[in-house]
Nucleic acid binder design. Structure first.
Lengths: 213, 213
DNA sequence: GTGACACTACACCGTGCAGTGTAGTTAAGT
DNA sequence: ACTTAACTACACTGCACGGTGTAGTGTCAC
């Protein structure tokens, strides 16, 4: 009579090994994709026996799920940090706002997107989401929500003219970040300089469109 | 003494079957991904024996390559058509320009992107390009080139203020189309109405930033 | 009829891989 | 010393799939 514990992990185990396995899986999934990564390879990279991988995670899908979950969390908290650090409440001039926006976009692209883990992660999610419905839940608009909240505040203070803060946030993201991890496809490991230029130009256009007057 | 013909297709064959195989491969690759699609499944869907698939295309990779090639071509020509139909040379007012831009963006999203084949295609390319270096060549900036050429003309006629037409084209694409096939990830089969609204808003912002004065 | 050709049906090989079962080792707790 | 838990090493099952080889069938040209 087997007592089935429905918890995700089968073992309590040393958290250290869990992390090693998860890390190895992350690296390999992001680099080679889900299908092309074997559990044997993950085990080897984690310095752990294949059996242990199964003892911890049960099946390969669970491993992918855990990887995505963790990556999403760290992405969102990185963005949260960028918002807090840059989109502060003490701005008074449009010029101050400009440099705050530039700083914010740079911070995000460097800490999150630029690491190129971001695009790899998104690639992974969209490639596998058809087969892993649970992934859909993790898809989020949190980043845009955070930004739009700040825009709303700036709007109230007269720094921006934003009838629809959420839309403005979408536009800001499109102008400064989306082009960096371009929607038309290419991986683009753009040089630092050109990324900075793109951000400056994007902020420029954004302000031209959303500044009062 | 086997004479090796280095041509891509091993057979001349009935072009009809070639197309059937290619079409089947396209549907399956886009729906399920490269790795998850078996050659047997392609053959079955094309109503052809597996052996024939190999006689025509040699190996699975070649099939993928052909699919991407064909899809890219048809995508580009669809965009070309949208440009020709909408971004005409007879515009005189900013209001005329506005509706031309809206028409253009709608036409593109409907004929190319909206079919959702576009995002599936891009997903496929970026997911497999690591393993298929030949794909890189097919990655193009043609669409943006076409648009920027039109912007340059409008700039000369005083309808737009575009010191850097290519940049303006990037911004236009980002504002109107990229958000549709969003970079943040989700598949987004958005309703027609909301897509239209997004386009109108995007054009609005674009014009606010790029109109003279 | 004879040949050439395009194609199918089918068997087949090799391999890589998800997942399991198990015996044995190590180390800690008592 | 005894028990228990965490792991490893390793063998093994089952399957799916890429790719090939081949015998046979239909069809057209001459």
């Amino acid at each position: 009579m087997a007592m089935v514990e429905a918890g995700k992990g089968v073992r309590a185990g040393s958290a250290h090994k869990r992390a090693a396995i998860l890390g190895a899986a992350r690296e390999l999934f992001l680099a080679d994709g889900f299908e092309r990564t074997s559990v044997d390879a993950i085990a080897a990279r984690a310095g752990v026996s294949k059996r242990t991988v199964y003892d911890y995670y049960g099946e390969k899908r669970a491993l992918l799920l855990a990887v995505v979950e963790q990556a999403m969390d760290s992405l969102i908290s990185a963005i949260q940090r960028s918002v807090d650090d840059n989109l502060t409440d003490d701005l008074t001039s449009v010029e101050g706002l400009r440099s705050a926006l530039v700083g914010f976009a740079r911070s995000v692209t460097e800490s999150a997107l630029g690491s190129s883990d971001y695009s790899a992660l998104m690639r992974l999610v969209s490639a596998e989401s058809a087969n892993l419905p649970e992934l859909e839940e993790r898809v989020t608009t949190e980043p845009e929500d955070l930004v739009s909240e700040r825009f709303l505040r700036y709007g109230r203070r007269g720094l921006l003219e934003v009838p629809n803060p959420r839309l403005a946030a979408d536009h800001f993201v499109a102008l400064t970040m989306a082009s960096t991890a371009s929607a038309i496809g290419r991986p683009v490991a753009q040089s630092d300089a050109s990324t900075r230029q793109m951000i400056a130009d994007g902020v420029d256009v954004f302000l031209r469109a959303y500044t009062p007057r």
